[in-house]
Design a protein around this nucleic acid. Sequence first.
DNA 1: CAGCCTCGAGTTCT
DNA 2: CTCGAGGCTG
Length: 710
Amino acid sequence: MSGAGGGSGDLFAEPAQGPAPASATPAADLGAAARAARLRALIAAHDHAYYVLDAPTIPDAEYDRLFRELQALEAAHPDLATADSPTRRVAGRPLEGFAPVRHAVPMRSIRTETDTTAEGARAFDARVRRELKLADSDPPVVYAAELKFDGLAINLRYEAGVLVQAATRGDGETGEDVTQNVCTIRAIPLRLATPAPPPVLEVRGEVYLRRDDFEALNEAARNRGDKTFVNPRNAAAGSIRQLDPAIAAQRPLSFFAYGLGETQGWDLLGAALATHSGVLDALLALGLPVCHERTTGTLDDLVRFHTDIAARRDALPFDIDGVVYKVDSLALQAQLGFVTREPRWAVAHKYPPQEMLTTVEAIDVQVGRTGKLTPVARLAPVFVGGVTVTNATLHNANEIERKDVRVGDTVIVRRAGDVIPEVVGVLPERRPAGAVPFAMPHACPVCGSDAVRDEGEVDSRCSGGLVCAAQRKQALLHFAQRRAMDIDGLGDKIVEQLVDAGIVRTLPDLYRLGVLKLAELERMAEKSAANLLQAIDASRQTTLARFLFGLGIRHVGEATAKDLARHFGSLDALMNASVEALLQVEQVGPVVAESIHTFFAQPHQREVVEQLRACGLTWAETGGAREAAMAPLTGKTFVLTGTLPTLSREQAQALIEAQGGKVAGSVSKKTHYVVVGADAGSKLEKARELGIAQLDEAGLLGLLQNAQNS
DNA sequence: CAGCCTCGAGTTCT
DNA sequence: CTCGAGGCTG
């Protein structure tokens, strides 16, 4: 089916024409009426293409031009304005309140399956078969499965094909008239795309906000200093209940149709309407947006649908809170009927909620390796998205101020596609009396040194440096981590004790530990003490890059440490390098060069380095840049994706780097090769897009072999 | 100078 | 994984 305009082929290639002159003659009025009708059809067709088919047909500027021409025409000829004119989408006066609307057919809720696993579908199937008195030998029941959107349920009433009223669900019997606001939603056709519309057609569906539209909306609100919305659902509901339609018009709301209310003459439309899925197809043909994430089939298909959607839930462009199963045959639906107010032929099958309410019990301040003070919300434990959450970072003072999180507040916690819990927002109405705004401390909570927040910075930092026990602990943990010195068994619990007991104050102290000292610690039996000492001992033999990374110089991470090691070849060459010499290293600019130079200019740091060398730390040194330039893969950038058959990611990286190549984390134009393993994801797609050479493990090994021989 | 690309740093729970 | 900042490129 083509769009609302009726389907002539030149619809999208309308030549530009100016608005009709205001001082039109009666003859010109006839032209104006035809032109206005033409414009309405064009705009409706473009809206349909953009919002329903998701396939824009003209540039925004061109659309705006058509729209303004129609507005001008209708302003000049008020009698031309019609009920289905798209100009209705931006017009309208603020309301005093919403008029109640009694639903001709109640808007029922559907019961929720309690089992949240994919197997929950079986309980529904079993109930349906029992009600229908089907034997095991009878054929399987056919179902329709679709998404349960997290938005606001709306009833749209079309009379003779024109949208005349939109109402919220309310209590199911009586809702509110929100026609003006709903008219601003471009995805909703103001006129049905059929030459023979039924006398009455009520369409039910969900108004929602796409996640990206929600983010953009909040971003704009933030820039204006306005209050932001907590989640897309609240934003959608708030927009629909806006009294001023001009505001609602600016909210990028979307809509999906999923069912019917009252109908008159609808049954004349055809035989396809024997099933729920046929009804949805018919609604789509009438120009209404219907979500394409749906399926029909038997029980196994429902289970598969639930599993599939669960896996892709976070990647969907909008929030859902589950899936819905319906008996597809309308005849069977009628046979099943209702229990009290809920249909027996449908069930909502929800996923574990990704958002939950909890309370803030305290806001603590953590001190990081660089001295950064990070406020952390201690939460009453909540089970959200499959795990119990008790902590959530609040990032910095700006973030807290923006969300205005206070101790005692009830907050919404989310665990989105990433794993990391996040405080989404506060419910101000649940705030206890006397809750005070959070203030960042002006002294380090660990060592009491001044906490400084530089001009233009969002972070506060403890100025105590290594005097601060927190920073010392973090520095030790960083030094010991796998990608640095790789000291197995030196975790946060042990470091905590070592520092608090005053046994370890500096990095070299680690290498002077003995069994006797370790025996003083809790949870440190002979065996684990021996293991730890063994791990520390093994770490003496290392690489220059690991050692540099382990020192924790600001702005020197793993990649930069490798660049520095390759360029200078020896620690002494690096320690004595001038800022100018440091700037010669690739990826090192003024900020990084200054940071490195300052670090090694401090006698205290040079002392630490000397002591570490005296403790027996060694690594192979090279001739530096000139020698590195001889390596066969110098200047080549690789990206690893997926799982290789025999090599681990680390092994592959080491092999590439051994010959001067570099392994980057993401694919870009500058990538030379992408090494593709099993279950490769988005990186492979990107590589295809950019036409970058692909290697499998054998190809990589071949390349390395060739490079070595040449 | 703007926009792209990469790296560093911080974060939670099992 | 994500954000922000530093470095590089056109």
